[in-house]
């Protein structure tokens, strides 16, 4: 039974893989082609060996109208990591407060945080821009990241995680003499580490993909993210060098993929090991 190959299942799987890989392959092969050939509509599926230089070239020099791609990758990376870390730190602390401490207006505090879920950056973009402008944060890295950090999604997730932690564990730690900070550091964070890893992946990808806010708030080329960079490469006046665009798109994909693969191993281990 177990030796028999399940042909229909394999066919479906192979088709699925092809469906996902083909566009990527097209981008990869296209990035090595002669830009003039692409412009004529001759997009070969076979990579051209002499075209591989384009990756080094865009990393070093970028494309007409943009800075070097390495800097865009750096800006995007720094932004995504800042957003992910910032959100996690803020939401762990706020979730910790609303879950484990009894203070006046606790419910009100929680609901106020909760309501920000209805106000993503796209909705409050004009007032947020005004605030950033008043604080002189336009065209700065903090201006790029801080408004994206403030949101309730992660607070909500951590609150759910913390709610299932048994009271006895909290009480045992109290009797052992762990104060609030020690409890957070020694017990709460390690116990929710698998959720932490999962959330980091989601938030990193969220930060990496940001487009609208960076477009508005950061107009200097020094703060161009990779996503903005790709758009800038598709010029309107000059002829677009599609091989460079495709190479950049490919490079833009790698960091999120790397984060997912890296953290996936970690949080899957956390999930299978973990026990509350």
């Amino acid at each position: 039974m177990r030796n028999r190959v399940d042909w229909p299942a394999h066919v479906v799987l192979v088709l699925g893989v092809a469906l996902f890989v083909l566009p990527l392959w097209l981008v990869f092969a296209g990035s090595t082609q002669d830009p003039a050939a692409i412009a004529r509509g001759e997009l070969s599926l076979i990579p051209r060996l002499e075209g591989f230089g384009v990756f080094a070239s865009i990393l070093r020099d970028g494309s007409p109208g943009t800075g070097p791609v390495w800097r865009m990758l750096l800006v995007s990376g720094a932004m995504a990591v800042s957003i992910a870390f910032g959100k996690i730190v803020i939401s762990i602390l706020s979730a910790y407060a609303v879950t484990f401490f009894r203070f006046p207006f606790r419910k009100a505090a929680f609901w106020t945080i909760f309501i920000t879920l209805m106000l993503p950056i796209e909705v409050r973009i004009v007032p947020t821009y005004e605030v950033m402008s008043d604080l002189h944060l336009i065209n700065t890295f903090p201006g790029l990241t801080i408004p994206l950090i403030a949101s309730a999604t992660a607070t909500l997730l951590f609150r759910q995680t913390f709610l299932v932690i048994p009271d006895e564990l909290v009480e045992a730690a109290r009797i052992d003499g762990a104060g609030p900070w020690r409890f957070l550091k020694d017990i709460l964070i390690p116990v929710s580490s698998s959720n932490l890893a999962a959330l980091f992946v989601i938030l990193f990808v969220y930060g990496w993909n940001q487009y609208l806010w960076p477009l508005l708030v950061a107009t200097t080329p020094q703060l161009d993210t990779i996503v903005i960079g790709i758009v800038k490469m598709i010029g309107t006046e000059t002829q677009t060098e599609w091989n460079r665009v495709m190479a950049t798109a490919l490079l833009a994909m790698l960091p999120p993929v790397a984060v997912v693969i890296l953290m996936q191993r970690w949080f899957v281990r956390g999930l299978t090991d973990g026990e509350k």
Binding site: P166, E168, E171, A172, R174, I175, A178, D186, I187, V191
Partner: peptide
């Protein structure tokens, strides 16, 4: 509780899982 010099054994053990 920490300053009372007591120790408690809980019904569900309450061991730190990690």
């Amino acid at each position: 509780p920490a300053d009372r010099d007591i120790a408690m054994v809980f019904q569900n053990y309450a061991l730190y899982p990690h």
